[in-house]
Simulated scan of single mutants.
Amino acid sequence: MLQTANLNLTGNIDWLGSWGLSFTNGKAQASTATSKKIHDLITSTGEFSVETWVTPNNVVQEGPARIVTYSLGDNDRNFTLGQSQYNYDFMLRNEQTSSNGEPTNKYT
């Protein structure tokens, strides 16, 4: 079942002519109520998928620089899709990982 989340944009965000956004110390964040709906769907099925359309703007940064994350805060993330240089990193919190989902799985 598809669950969407309206996002509130805050911080330094530029709208690009290519119909995209560029974030520099900014974020797009869903409300707590929307996040609860997503939580309920994930816990009822034990499954989820994440779709993103991204183009890295900085391929020399260390990371992972967060692209999308579902979390309680800065140190307790349920999952994170991030970027480190030319790699995409995925972290999923489970019994074998930290509360931040580390260690990271890297994909190129």
Rank of each mutant, 00 (worst) to 15 (best):
R77K: 14
K37M: 10
V68S: 01
V59M: 12
D74H: 04
D76Y: 09
A30V: 05
V60H: 10
V68Q: 02
K36C: 01
S49I: 03
D74M: 02
H39Y: 14
D74T: 05
N75K: 14
I67T: 05
P64D: 15
L41E: 14
L41T: 09
A33K: 01
L41Q: 15
T32P: 05
E47A: 07
T45W: 08
S49E: 11
F48L: 03
Q61R: 11
L41H: 12
V54G: 06
V59D: 12
I38S: 03
T43V: 13
I38T: 04
Q61P: 00
V50Y: 01
A30W: 06
A33I: 05
N58D: 15
N75Q: 13
Y70C: 03
A65S: 10
V60N: 14
E51M: 04
N57K: 13
I42C: 01
S44V: 00
E47S: 08
N58V: 12
V68P: 01
L72Y: 06
V59I: 14
I38W: 11
K36M: 12
I38L: 14
G63D: 09
G63P: 07
V59T: 15
P64K: 11
V50S: 04
K37N: 11
T52F: 03
T52A: 13
R66C: 05
V68C: 04
P56M: 04
E47F: 10
A33G: 00
L41W: 11
N58K: 12
V50W: 02
R77L: 10
E47R: 11
T43A: 05
G46L: 04
V59Q: 15
I67V: 13
S31V: 02
T43P: 00
V54Q: 09
Q61M: 08
G63W: 03
F48P: 01
E51I: 07
G46K: 10
D74F: 01
V50K: 04
T52Y: 02
G46S: 06
V68T: 08
N78A: 15
R66G: 00
V59H: 11
V68N: 01
Q61L: 13
T32H: 07
K37T: 13
T34H: 01
V59W: 08
E62T: 13
A33N: 03
A33V: 08
E51N: 07
D40E: 14
L72R: 10
T52M: 08
V60C: 03
W53H: 09
Q61V: 10
A65F: 00
S71C: 10
N78D: 07
T34W: 01
Y70S: 03
N78V: 14
N78R: 02
E62V: 07
A65Y: 04
K37Y: 08
K37R: 12
H39S: 09
F48N: 03
T32Y: 06
T34E: 15
G46F: 06
S49Y: 13
D40G: 01
T69A: 14
A33F: 02
